[in-house]
């Protein structure tokens, strides 16, 4: 863990997260004494809180522990998210194709761990080609398009999109950057929820996600952008991205991509007719119910940062292969 807290923003975000977890029960109890919480709401808040007590260390510790810990933690997240998707759709019964998707996710993770950008990018197209071809095995044209589409969709979201978070770890400055992204994405959800309660009138997409409102979406957009720009000023200090225009653009991009990820998984759930994608996180549902907002934030910010300053350019590449 040497150098884990080398950047002041890493210390700031870590302390903020730990403090938030310490203060939350106090806030719940104050609200409870004031009579603002119904017993059910209090129970739900605590169920979510206890899940965060596990989730925050699960996100924080690998990022602080080092490059490979981060990359493999992201790889595991991708595999578990894929498992949930495969079981909810029934796609897991196509064992061979399912194994090909898993192999694609594993290879993306290895490409990140090797810091081999060419292979990391090549896997997007090569794996899609492989999935389209593997789906031919068995000579069963019935359902071909459906199984190929589900395989490509799953690989694109849980392999390629999530995989960008792993590749970020090849940058020398990845710790404050990833912590900033994770903090803003999760608070983006909280902002949307709270702003929706206060200002939400017009529904955003009533058929896809009845709880979401324009008020919540715009409120989250403004607050998350401001939060990202504020902390980002410390994280990107000394680079071209520390300019206000970049900070605001990245914050806006994060909030927009985060909310779209949420809508995409909501759409998947409505199509499948399920309320949650799984049951692993009490109070939240499945992994995908909690981490849906991360899906598009990874590629969006990765390529923005990559275009203007590059990711891991000053670090040794192709370490193993």
């Amino acid at each position: 863990m040497s150098g884990a807290f080398a950047h002041p923003a890493t210390i700031g975000i870590s302390v903020f997260l730990v403090a938030l977890l310490a203060v939350a029960p106090v806030i719940f109890e104050v609200l409870n004494r004031m009579g603002k919480l119904t017993p059910e709401l209090r129970r739900e808040l605590y169920a979510r809180y206890f899940s965060w007590l596990v989730l925050v260390p699960l996100m924080l510790v690998p990022v602080l522990a080092g490059r490979l810990f981060t990359i493999f933690a992201v790889g595991l997240l991708g595999l578990f998210a894929y498992r949930e998707f495969a079981r909810a759709t029934g796609f897991f019964r196509n064992r061979l194709l399912s194994a090909a998707v898993v192999l694609g996710i594993v290879l993306i993770t290895l490409a990140s761990a090797d810091h081999w950008y060419g292979f990391f990018m090549a896997l997007s197209s090569l794996t899609v080609c492989a999935l389209v071809i593997v789906a031919l095995i068995g000579d069963q044209p019935k359902g071909y398009l459906q199984r190929v589409a589900l395989a490509v969709f799953a690989f694109a979201l849980f392999g390629v999109c999530l995989g960008h978070f792993g590749y970020f770890a090849n940058d020398k400055n990845y710790r404050p950057l990833l912590l900033l992204i994770l903090l803003c994405v999760e608070l983006n959800d909280v902002f949307a929820f709270c702003c929706g309660k206060f200002f939400g009138r017009r529904k955003l997409a009533p058929n896809t996600s009845p709880g979401k409102t324009w008020g919540g979406a715009i409120g989250a957009f403004v607050l998350t952008t401001a939060l990202f720009a504020g902390i980002g000023w410390f994280v990107f200090a000394g680079t071209v991205l520390a300019a206000p225009v970049h900070l605001v653009t990245m914050g806006a991009l994060l909030s927009f991509a985060g909310q779209l990820g949420d809508l995409v998984i909501s759409s998947v759930k409505r199509d499948l007719g399920v309320k949650d994608m799984g049951v692993v996180i009490p109070g939240h549902g499945g992994l995908l119910d909690r981490f849906d907002s991360l899906l598009f934030v990874g590629p969006a910010l990765f390529h923005y940062v990559g275009y203007f300053v590059g990711v891991g350019l000053d670090q040794p590449a192709r370490l193993w292969f």
């Binding site: 079981r87 909810a88 759709t89 399920v274 799984g278």
Partner: peptide, 29 residues
């Protein structure tokens, strides 16, 4: 499209292992 979720969706851990509706995924296969 026809989706057929795993019959044991919604069950976790020991509850899933003991379910008569359990369907094996890749790792257990």
């Amino acid at each position: 499209w026809e989706y057929k979720p795993a019959a044991d969706v919604g069950l976790a851990g020991a509850e899933r292992w003991r379910s008569l509706r359990r369907e094996a995924g890749l790792p257990s296969t």
